[in-house]
Nucleic acid binder design. Structure first.
Length: 105
DNA sequence: CCCATGACTAATT
DNA sequence: AAATTAGCCATGG
């Protein structure tokens, strides 16, 4: 198995500071260089790594939508709210402002 | 190698 | 603003 991709994703996700979020596209661009690899990124985290150990709940969609979560979207919203991120329905408020970008993409 | 699937994205209608 | 289409990538059967 080539865990390289999976591991790379987890590594980046772990770097997301509390209260901040990032998008699947950014992670994809950081690893593969293609923003369209976002699906692959989704697959990587969807296989349920270590919940909470890896803050996968800080990964949202490019348009500010929550996206999904292994433990349920509700749990994701809960966690984000607990970190100070306001959630409206399925969207993150001021999401672009809380967006955490990796070192010079 | 081919096919189907998914926590995606961008563009179009 | 919501729904559809098309593109792109890794994984598993």
């Amino acid at each position: 198995m080539d865990k390289n991709f999976h591991e790379a994703v987890l590594k980046l996700v772990k770097q997301i500071p509390e209260g901040k979020v990032t998008t699947y596209g950014e992670i994809a661009r950081e690893i593969t260089g293609s923003v369209h690899a976002a699906r692959a990124v989704g697959q990587a985290v969807a296989t349920n790594p270590y919940p909470i150990v890896v803050p996968c709940h800080r990964v949202v969609r490019s348009d500010g939508d929550i996206g999904g979560y292994s433990l349920g979207v509700d749990k994701k919203i809960r966690l984000l709210s607990a970190e100070g991120a306001e959630i409206k329905g399925r969207k993150v408020l001021n999401f672009e402002q809380r967006l955490f970008l990796f070192d010079c993409i």
